[in-house]
Simulated assay, not measured.
Amino acid sequence: MRQTKRHPLAISVILLLFAFGCFFAAAYGITILIYRWTGTPTDFWAHIISGLVGILLIICVASISRLLVGRYSKRIKQHQGIQSQILNAMTRIAQGDFDVFIDTWDDEFHHNDMVEGINKIAKELGSMEQLRQDFISNVSHEIQSPLTSISGFAALLRKDTLTAEQKNHYLSIIETESKRLSALSDNLMKLSTLETGGEPLSFTEFRLDKQLEEVALMLEPQWSAKHIAMEVDLERVAIQGDEGLLSQVWVNLLHNAIKFTPEGGVIRVSLTSDQTNVCCRITDTGIGIAPEDQIHIFERFYKVDKSRERALGGNGLGLSLVKKIVELHDGQITPQSEIGKGTTFTITLQRLHSVKEN
């Protein structure tokens, strides 16, 4: 059997006529309801009124439909615009451009959560990229200085006219700069390992007072050479922690105290405990740290006085390493300092138990 295809225009006309018929039928029904209260007019006016009501219904429905279609089209365009912005932002982020920000919209498609998420991702990635660039710049700067010194003094050693004293002096400088490079590399590796969790902590129970005493004795040649008085007041107490890492904390802090305390100064080390915590304070009578610098001293490569730090062999990583180790032990480290009066570092760790005298 052969099927015939109806033309779309014919179908549209039929549907339109059907819709008009429905509107006028509805108008006729409405007028009949009205006539129950107002009375029925002559047939002529009844048809006129019914037709006017039908036309009015058509106009109202058409206006409402146009308004709804307009609002829906606007929302669709808004939806498409937001989608376009989101796709563009994600493309820019994928290409390494993190300077992205999308305005939030008050829409019914609930894009705001997605938009806020993308803005947050872009901001965090931008911060990480800035940190990465700063890190590379700082590492390059720290490496370049000793390499320049090593290269320069190695070239001077080629001269045949140098005395033995001059050669020894240049060799001493090369050795010192080589140690600086080695310390920089070692600290960077330790920080990287601790932050990535590449090497788990080895927690054991040990006497913290004994460890502090041993570190102070190990550094005796340094503080004795500057005629610094080392005052130690240690409560007998044991803790659980990574003994090797915590030893680095005390070595770094005491080394800094010795380095920045002038000859004839005083360094005090105290250890106390209460029911829950152990508190170690390392106080010196050194040059002190300005308030504006204290909030930055735990940042990598930060140096209060770059020229002075370089002369003393620092690389700005020691305190970053100290803070990371203390945090891995669920502890806190707090600096207090005043220019010309010295610095105190307070380290709080969880207490295991007190050790009684034998």
Score class of each variant (00 low, 15 high):
R6D: 09
L16P: 00
A19P: 00
C22T: 14
Y28D: 14
R36S: 09
T42F: 05
S63N: 11
L68Y: 10
V69S: 07
G70F: 12
S73M: 07
Q80C: 08
Q80E: 15
Q85C: 03
G96P: 00
V100K: 05
I102F: 00
D113N: 06
V115G: 08
K120A: 13
A122Q: 02
Q130K: 14
V139T: 14
H141Q: 11
Q144G: 09
S151L: 13
S151Y: 10
F153L: 03
R158D: 15
R158E: 14
L162W: 10
H169F: 11
T176Q: 11
L191V: 07
R207M: 09
D209Y: 08
L217W: 04
Q222T: 07
K226H: 06
K226E: 12
V232M: 14
L234W: 02
E235P: 04
E235D: 10
V266W: 03
V266C: 09
T272C: 06
C279S: 06
C279Q: 10
C279Y: 11
R281I: 02
I297F: 07
E299F: 06
L319A: 10
V322G: 09
G331Y: 03
I333M: 11
P335A: 00
Q336P: 02
Q336G: 05
I339S: 12
T344S: 00
F345A: 01
Q350W: 04
S354E: 15
